[in-house]
Every structure is written in structure tokens, then in C-alpha cells.
Design a binder for these strands. Structure first.
Length: 256
DNA sequence: ATGACATTTGCAAAATGA
């Protein structure tokens, strides 16, 4: 069973790329982020024609998350991260898929920092940590996949020089990520490729893709029950080099 | 403090996000 996470950076403008990738990489489950379209304008029929049923929650212009399942349908559990009734951002959706619990996560970017956007990021992260704990208590196999907007360590970036003040590298962001992992989650891609330079995001600006100046910020976290079934993990880097590509590449795992 | 890029809005240049 192949499960992928892909920040598409606008599903409307990226639909041809997305469909090509689905056909080529053939994930059984695809968690998408940054749909950047309203719930009503999600291209469900185009995805259905490609063999995928979906659950999604959108929002005009930004955010938006979805879970796609090939040859089956995800059963939605929740479409709001618990803990703040005033939060209007579409950043979380969770579904049951073939005995697994799968979440598609778009954690706030948090720039500029310090400031209200960074405060929102950390508060959102705390809510995620609380909710992840309740999922862990359920004792079922869980995959938390998405754009975490956190570079976990200096090994996960080409160079920290231009990014030291960025929200993605702040000690508070990294501590929150470590706090989440400490509950018992496994960072699947890093686990399968210790010591390797692996990136999932290359900024459009400053020639960062041609220079391979990347960051690893898209992660698949596995509960122990899912981790024991892990057989492979990787990143479809080539997607980033295509015409009108997202600034992210898909990351994926294979579970037994 | 600004702009580097990509896209949308709305039909030019500005705003938005990251």
C-alpha cells in the first residue's frame, strides 16, 4: 500500500501535473495540501475519472486539504483540527482508509516571525500534538502526512544561511516537531534514509531548484502499528522539475 | 526594509503566499 503526501500549490493550475503524477506514481492514498480553491470548486470528477475517490475541505485562494483513495473511498472522520472553534483555516482532514487512519495536514507556515502568524503556527502545532496523542491512545495504525512547514534538523536543508530567521527553522518549531515525535511517531522518510540529503520543497525564487537548494518539510509520521509495516519510503523529486510544477515534490511510503 | 517567484484578480498593476 503506497501512501503519498503532496503540496500541490493550487489544484486548479496544477491539475494536469497532479493527474500525470497519479498515473505514473500510482499511490493508493494521496494526501494533498494547498488546494487553494473553495470546497465547491474541487475537481472531484476529474479525479474520479482518474480512479480516485476523495474527501476534501477547501477555502478560496489559500489552504485546503484532501485525501484521495484509488479504487475505494476514504471515510471521513473529521475536517477540523480540534481545539479552536474560531480557527477558520482549512488545514486538516482525517479519514479511515482500509483499516488505517490517515490525516492530511497543512501546518501554518508562520512567517514572518516573530508575530501573530508565528504565534498561530505554534498554537496550531500544540493542537496537533494534543490530537495526535488521542490518536496514539486509540492504538490503531495511523499515518499523519502533510506539509509540516518544519525543517527538523540542519541535515534537512541545503544550508541554513539564508533561513536562520525563517519560521521553518526556529527552535520553537523544531521543538514542537520533536515533541510530536516523542509520542512515538516515526518520521518514515528519514528513517528509511538516515544521513541522506533529501528535500521536498525548493523555493521558486533565487534559482533554488536548479541549485538543488531544497528543504525537507513534507513528512509522513507513522504510529507504531503503521511503522511495523513500513517497507519503503522516498520522494518523487522529478515532479519538481516539470513545467508549471508545484514548489513541492511528493513524498511517499509503502506499507506491507 | 525590500524583492526575489508564481498565481489570481480582473483586464493593469496590485495582492497574496511562503
Amino acid at each position: 500500500m503506497k501512501i503519498a503526501t503532496y503540496n500541490v500549490n493550487g489544484i486548479a493550475s496544477r491539475l494536469p501535473r497532479l493527474l500525470e503524477w497519479l498515473e505514473g506514481s500510482r499511490p493508493d492514498v494521496a494526501c494533498l495540501q494547498e488546494l487553494k480553491t473553495a470546497t465547491e470548486t474541487f475537481p472531484a470528477s476529474a479525479l474520479q475519472a482518474a480512479g480516485y475517490e476523495a474527501v476534501w475541505v477547501g477555502q478560496k485562494s489559500f489552504n485546503g486539504v484532501a485525501i484521495l483513495v484509488r479504487g475505494g473511498a476514504p471515510i471521513e472522520r473529521i475536517r477540523v483540527l480540534p481545539g479552536d472553534p474560531d480557527d477558520t483555516h482549512s488545514r486538516y482532514i482525517e479519514a479511515e482508509v482500509g483499516g488505517l487512519v490517515v490525516a492530511s495536514i497543512y501546518l501554518p507556515n508562520g512567517n514572518p516571525q516573530p508575530g501573530p502568524k508565528f504565534d498561530y503556527k505554534l498554537a496550531w502545532f500544540e493542537r496537533l500534538i494534543r490530537h495526535a496523542d488521542t490518536l496514539m491512545q486509540e492504538g490503531r495504525p495511523v499515518v499523519l502526512a502533510g506539509d509540516y512547514n518544519v525543517v527538523p534538523t540542519d541535515e534537512d536543508i541545503y544550508s541554513t544561511k539564508s533561513w536562520l530567521d525563517d519560521a521553518l527553522l526556529q527552535p520553537q518549531s523544531r521543538q514542537a516537531y520533536q515533541q510530536l515525535l516523542a509520542q512515538g511517531w516515526l518520521d518514515a522518510v528519514r528513517h528509511r534514509h538516515p544521513g541522506e540529503r533529501i528535500y521536498t520543497f525548493w523555493d521558486y525564487m533565487r534559482n533554488r531548484w536548479p541549485r538543488d537548494a531544497g528543504l525537507r518539510i513534507d513528512h509522513l509520521l507513522l504510529s507504531p502499528g503503521a511503522a511495523s509495516r513500513l517497507v519503503d519510503a522516498g520522494v518523487d523529486r522529478d515532479e519538481r522539475g516539470k513545467e508549471r510544477a508545484s514548489d513541492h515534490a511528493p513524498a511517499w511510503i509503502v506499507l506491507r
